[in-house]
Amino acid sequence: MREFLKIALNLFVISLVSAGLLGVIFTHTEATRKRNEQARLEQSMSRYLPANAGAVRFAAIHRYLVEEGGRSDIGYVLPVRGGNALLVLDPEGNVLSKTPVAGPVDDEAERDAAVKRALSGGEARYADSYILALDSSGRRLASFIQGRTAGFKTWVKLLVALGPDNAVLGLEILEHEEDPGLGAEIEQEYFRNQFAGRTLAELNALGVVKLPLPDDYRRCLERSKWAARGINPQAETAVCEKYAHEDIHAITGATISSRRVTEGVKRLVQAFVKRMDIVESAAAKAGLEPAFSPEGR
């Protein structure tokens, strides 16, 4: 019996020490992890801002799906004067409720908890985020959609950058689990950059073609290589112009991944344009003062 107790105590002490150690390290690294992740996101967004933008402020709108008693509504976490607010709208865009959200909203887990507290009943599921880049006067310089779409295997998480006129500035693939060498090529510049410069009207009619990517087009799409070789981007952009209004060229061996991502970008952008109109008018109706203002005000 004494032997048993000794063994148990031994193991218990080992577990306790390691749990304590992990706790200490976790509290130290967790804050850094969040900060670095945010910095990484902001860095990839700042690539799409005009070079002379000056001081840029980011305002994030997080969309939740609120389900209660068989009906589903949309909840938006908006930055408003003096904090954040949860605005719940029905599918037609009528205001159902507005409540202040207490607590930080940048981290997904913390935000989920804060939304749950702000909601009187029902269940909220995170859907996607819209991040607006604003200049000092509150004008929109660019908008970013952080959402997901079905890929060939599982979900593909993307970041779509839009200009003030809602034309696509660029596409970033944040996370995916496609096959290396095949679907994983969606990460590559020669696929992603095909989206740059598409206007909203072009995007609506955008398709995918199974044609080999012309060599000169590929060269001009691979922008990071220009910089590495000291080539002036301007000269190459002219080549791109020739192809810029054609359909997306599918990746060899990954037509389905290409088609799903293209479809996803289309749907995300269309939904964003519609939802921003709804949110802006609904926020005004609800008497909220969002930290972003509609264009031209």
């Binding site: 589903s72 709208l89 037609e92 269309q270 519609k274």
Partner: peptide
């Protein structure tokens, strides 16, 4: 018809 994920579209 709406997708359950986006009832407003």
């Amino acid at each position: 018809v709406v997708e359950r994920e986006s009832p407003d579209i």
